[in-house]
Design a protein around this nucleic acid. Structure first.
Lengths: 146, 146
DNA sequence: CCATGTGGTTGTAGAGTACAACTTGAAGGA
DNA sequence: TCCTTCAAGTTGTACTCTACAACCACATGG
């Protein structure tokens, strides 16, 4: 059984290796929806709509970046804006029907890709891995960082 | 205990969440060395020198991208090129002393950050997590993809 | 000695991102 | 009421990362 330091070293290296490839692989697999666009659309679906500022805060992005991303998604008819009647400054963002559909297609392909890569894992291993990732990311959400 | 599909869904979502933040966080933590530069330097250290083509193949990058990255690292005096006497086309890349030092500093800070985020994990959990990440990435290395 | 292949660089273009300056609307106090 | 201050979002600008294509230099095998 390896020592703490070795394990931390491996976790660091392997998570980094994954991160390094994720963007490029996502671009190759789904040229029509970048990793960022995909995550923004997912967030909109999960939250059933939210503000650009919320997206920026959640994903540690500059508001100008989000503004341009949303503009692109709107041009593609995947997202629509609805001005908040209670605060004219606010635009609540929602998926369009086309946005929901595109997201579902890409999500399905991504899911299939992960299924394939995890095909030879048994149910317990999968559950354990999922739990550890949740735990790791939960710490991040509260403290920020790597 | 969750079902296969749920676990795969969670793994997909959490790994994506990590990837989404990795680059930005790395840039914030180590403005002097981007995630890509860091991984290239690490590889050079592990391999005790290699060719630009090898880096491109390993990291799924275009050779022009690697060429420019290396040019930058050379300008910063972190990397040096040595023409292979057996093949004048080949430049074997090596870390300089400064490169080794910079890499060590950034690696130490990254390691400390990971240590902190994993501080409340016990040794067995760490070892388990490390093993699962290794297994996951090993599948990737052979099949490519996400 | 030429044809073909490999290692690497350069030109060009596009995505993603940040920072700063600005516009518009909201909220609160003198 | 009016003015100040703050929050949401957009736009101008610049820089990095990246890919693709065209190219150069060297190597290798007929």
């Amino acid at each position: 059984m390896p020592h703490r330091d070795e394990s931390v070293e491996i976790i660091q290296r392997e998570l980094t290796a994954f991160a390094r490839r994720a963007r490029a692989s996502a671009a190759r697999m789904h040229p029509e929806l970048s990793l960022v666009s995909y995550t923004l659309l997912s967030h909109l679906e999960d939250q059933r709509g939210c503000r650009a500022t919320d997206l920026a805060a959640h994903y540690l992005l500059d508001k100008s970046t989000v503004s341009r991303q949303i503009a692109t998604l709107e041009r593609l008819d995947l997202v629509e804006r609805r001005v908040d009647p209670d605060d004219q400054r606010v635009q609540v963002l929602h998926l369009t029907a086309a946005g929901r559909e595109t997201l579902a297609q890409v999500a399905a392909r991504r899911h299939a890709a992960f299924q394939e890569r995890l095909a030879d894992w048994n149910e317990d291993d999968l559950a354990g891995f999922a739990a550890q990732l949740l735990r790791y990311n939960a710490a991040h959400d509260s403290s920020g960082g790597a």
